[in-house]
Design a protein around this nucleic acid. Structure first.
Lengths: 263, 263
DNA sequence: CGAAGTTTTGAGGACCTTCAAAAGTTGTGG
DNA sequence: CCACAACTTTTGAAGGTCCTCAAAACTTCG
């Protein structure tokens, strides 16, 4: 399942880096029309810089822009009454994090940085107008949010029906897979995981104490190695087996291509 | 389990009932263009009937149609290696369950009936063509899948960070809320819940034994009453408090209306 | 009325949490 | 370059929520 997506994945980028990466992601899934591609590449935007552990969007905010990550790692999360927190997804370079905010007026979750982060902000109107004028782009954007939904489904499965060991392994494999897709691997089995154990445990629905013991177990059983904040998958086959990991939910195959030819 | 939803629930619709209900749902959120509305109402379709506990879609299927529920209750689910199952969402009359399958080729989850069910099947191409020709419909459909994603996020929070009592209360409140929105309430606080405890526990990420005890506790503490498969919210305020329920994630406010005027 | 499915009950044990506190790591300024 | 503060990871012990495995009681329906 883990073929190399690296082959010519990211062309040398200059200028509006984030939009180019995002356009490349969409284009790779399914080629966009010339006009549509140009429209996405030329989206007006401005950059904004955040330090670690800052909110980009707070729950309940009404935003005016979508943001594409240029550098850094962020998460989406919800907080509960008692102060508990559930992280809903992680995102890195090239992801348009709150594409959904183009249509959903009040954010039902927050977005927060985990590392120093630079984002590129695109006005909602721009996104909606492009979608209205280029059906193929509309379709690509829609598909992107559908993949998002697929990830949420998988996370529901993860916290709902897997043991702490299984869900930890699953999260690590998702990270590895997406790092590979985004061309961010350090070596074939090693990737950066710039997330504290406390935050990881909020993503996994367990306590940080228990996550710590779970990680020790995964290291002891030679599933993974860690140093600093890099993780190496030491025994991929065993990990996949343990976690029941199947990347189908990430839909690397891209969207359906039937229907009217897009304009 | 095979309940009549007929108790004043469904207004007397004739002809293409499911499409009308679905169109009404979209139109209520945000008025559609005349052409778009007509296109949705005139979607070609054919009906299909299922008995209880039948698969409509299996994990891994490549489907050719989207389906709108005409009568009955269904769930989306995933099964894990060990035979465990996680239910991802429930759906009733008027929901287009696998709208996403219009773009996603291989289903990453199954769809199964819980009661005798009639669905109306619409070819993917029809949906995609309408979306390509009517940007306002494209936007409405996109929004519908975004609400879906919001529900998945909330369920992740539910199984990840709430106790068995809280998540059970939360699920019941979501059911009550959506029943009200779809005009399916039996009385102000009573709704049909045609789902066995075993299935509910698969939605909540707990065992059916523990769900049973949790329900007994909710009854004993006067949060709810049940008879047969009807549930009454006896103390709504306490339930909302217990569950931390906030229906914002269901986005009843509808989609943003800015951007170019749709055609 | 019997068969099949669903809900309920019991007892024992496992997984995960809670609450500290110690040990290790990282970043900053003198 | 070391000292110190702030943060992160690790460890310990006790306890609670939830699970497992039956089996019994209750419903529903042919």
């Amino acid at each position: 399942m883990t073929k190399n997506f690296t082959v010519g994945a990211t062309p040398p980028l200059i200028g509006h880096v984030a939009a180019e990466r995002f356009a490349a992601k969409l284009h790779k899934r399914q080629p966009l029309s010339e006009g549509g591609l140009k429209a996405v590449l030329n989206m007006p935007s401005h950059k904004k810089t955040y330090s670690a552990y800052q909110d980009i969007v707070r729950e309940g905010d009404r935003t005016t822009h979508c943001c594409i990550i240029e550098t850094g790692t962020v998460s989406r999360y919800r907080t509960l009454g008692g102060g508990a927190r559930q992280i809903l997804s992680f995102h890195t370079v090239g992801d348009m994090i709150d594409l959904q905010s183009a249509l959903i007026m009040v954010s039902d979750h927050g977005i927060r940085t985990h590392t120093p982060t630079v984002v590129s902000l695109v006005p909602h109107d721009t996104v909606l107008n492009i979608a209205a004028h280029y059906p193929d782009v509309a379709r690509a954007l829609w598909f992107d949010t559908l993949v998002d939904a697929g990830i949420f489904r998988e996370w529901t499965v993860n916290v709902g029906r897997r043991s702490a060991r299984q869900r930890t392994a699953h999260l690590l494999l998702e990270f590895a897979y997406r790092s590979k897709m985004a061309d961010l691997m350090i070596d074939d089995d090693t990737f950066e995981l710039p997330i504290s154990q406390a935050d990881l445990s909020d993503a996994l629905g367990i306590t940080s104490v228990h996550l710590n013991r779970t990680l020790q177990w995964l290291r002891g059983a030679r599933y993974i190695r860690t140093h600093s904040r890099q993780v190496s998958i030491e025994n991929r086959q065993a990990m996949v087996m343990l976690a029941g990991f199947d990347p189908a939910y990430l839909h690397p195959e891209g969207p359906r291509t039937t229907g009217d030819a897009p304009g």
